[in-house]
Simulated scan of single mutants.
Amino acid sequence: MSLGEILVAVTAVAVGTTLQRVSGMGVGLVVAPVLSLLIGPVAGVWLTNATTTVSAFVIWRAMRTGSDWRRLRTLLPCAVIGAVPAALVVRELPLAWLEITVGSILVLGLLGTVLASAADRLPPVRGPFAAGVAGAVGGFFNTTAGVAGPSLVMYSRLSRWPHPSFAASMQPTFLTMGVLSVVLKLGVGAAPVSDLPQWWVVALLAGTVVAVVPLAGRLAARVPAETARRLALTVAWAGAIATLLRGASRLL
């Protein structure tokens, strides 16, 4: 990665971490499309998964309480069901089609996030089946495109999951899904070590997360969650469309 690319990546991670601390999600939405454009969908999404793992761990320690473990006992194991086939998809797809897949998943996820606002008018969804489906879809989306959040937002709206509990619960969720994605893609050869950024780049982005979280914690008390969510969606839409178009251009 060039110096300019590293600066863009650090900025994306700082913004995404701040948004995640304020609204409960944001790292994957902001970082995945940016890194996919900078270094390609395989290395970009893998680095997003690694960054999400660190950010979720650090933010979870800062938030300390509020996670709904009753839901997570169903949701998290089902993430494995989605993550395993996703790692194989990443390994087998040609680069152009992988970029199209990543861009399409980002667009679909963002559409789901937008449509989630209408979910409040639908009958509430209860029970472990819905949590299991959300976990499996989130695991698949996270491993292929680095964005588990939109499917989980949709589930939270449909199930009437209170936002404070949802935001706290997303940190162990993103931590688990991030570790799954990183390990599985290395294990099946979907993300060869030789194609990944140098170790110090990974360490730099992890250090950015650690440095930004205390500041983001202070902003969380002042910035409305809806404002942070809108900013994250704006950045994510731009990156998702650019990734999709670049994949299509490779085919042409």
Rank of each mutant, 00 (worst) to 15 (best):
D120Y: 07
S36Q: 06
A119S: 15
R64I: 01
L186H: 12
F174I: 14
T65G: 07
V179A: 15
G135H: 02
L158S: 05
K185C: 14
L7E: 00
D68K: 02
L122F: 10
G16S: 06
L72S: 03
A83I: 05
R160H: 13
W97M: 01
S2A: 08
Q20D: 08
A220G: 09
A190G: 07
V212I: 11
M63V: 15
F166M: 14
L186P: 05
A32I: 04
T101S: 13
G247Y: 02
S55D: 00
Q20W: 05
W237F: 09
T144Y: 00
D195R: 07
G247M: 02
A167G: 12
T17H: 01
L95T: 15
A130R: 03
A148T: 09
I59C: 10
L219W: 14
F141V: 10
A220N: 08
W60L: 09
R70Q: 15
V80C: 09
L233H: 13
T143H: 05
T144A: 13
L35A: 14
P124N: 07
A168H: 03
M1G: 12
A191I: 06
S159T: 13
S104V: 00
P164Q: 12
P85N: 07
R126Q: 14
G146V: 05
L252P: 08
V22D: 11
S249K: 10
C78S: 15
P192N: 06
G127T: 04
V34K: 03
L205M: 11
A232E: 10
M154Q: 07
T101I: 00
L180T: 02
A203T: 12
A240P: 02
